[in-house]
């Protein structure tokens, strides 16, 4: 199990756990509403330069930008290598 920041680009993974700092319920709820909750599929599409945010696809049709600080708190398990076309 690795954090979302460590996931290789364009690799699909399944969210295992969202361990927010100090049990931040607001963050857990917001992430869940955007589809980031245990058992859902995520894929990091790109990372912004200079330590900027990650561009993540959640499920099949939602895309979000989230900061590395938040992404570290999301634990995932990679399932398959999907090659970039």
């Amino acid at each position: 199990m690795i954090s979302l920041t460590e996931l290789t680009l364009n690799t699909t993974a399944i969210v295992q756990d969202v361990q927010t700092e100090g049990d931040n319920i607001a963050l857990t709820q917001r992430l869940a509403a955007l589809g980031i909750r245990p058992q859902c599929q995520v894929c990091v599409l790109r990372k912004a330069g200079f330590g900027g945010p990650l561009h993540v696809r959640v499920g099949a049709t939602t895309e979000v930008a989230l900061r590395r600080h938040e992404a570290v708190q999301i634990l995932v398990m990679p399932i398959a290598e999907s090659r970039r076309e």
């Binding site: 931040n24 607001a26 963050l27 917001r30 992430l31 955007l34 980031i36 945010p53 561009h55 939602t62 895309e63 979000v64 930008a65 989230l66 900061r67 938040e70």
Partner: peptide, 10 residues
Amino acid sequence: DEPFVLELPP
């Protein structure tokens, strides 16, 4: 203190 989780719509 709102988390930066921003939707990127198509």
